[in-house]
């Protein structure tokens, strides 16, 4: 079926660009991806990091460190596969 190695290439692209999504993407995976995008932007954007740090009364460095830590599991651990959709 896969005459031109299309499937392989697609797999490769999916691996390279996380968050591309496919038919079996769960709600948790999608949300995790969204949250990581957001957190990464907050970490990278000086004015956003300062904004959050000022509201929380923390230093910018600690706010950044906390947000990076949250990137690990921004929406908590993945639910068991059966209920994850």
């Amino acid at each position: 079926m896969d005459k031109f190695g299309m499937h392989n290439q697609t797999e490769n692209l999916f691996a390279k660009h996380p968050g591309t999504g496919h038919a079996d993407t769960t709600r948790h995976q999608w949300l995790t991806n969204q949250h990581r995008d957001t957190l990464a932007h907050y970490v990278a954007d000086d004015s956003m990091a300062l904004f959050i740090a000022m509201v929380e009364g923390e230093s910018v460095a600690r706010t950044r460190s906390d947000m990076l830590q949250r990137m690990r599991q921004p929406c908590g651990p993945a639910p068991p596969a059966a209920t994850g959709t």
Partner: peptide, 9 residues
């Protein structure tokens, strides 16, 4: 842009 997986940070 300020993207999660594009180097520059």
């Amino acid at each position: 842009g300020l993207r999660r997986q594009v180097p520059g940070q």
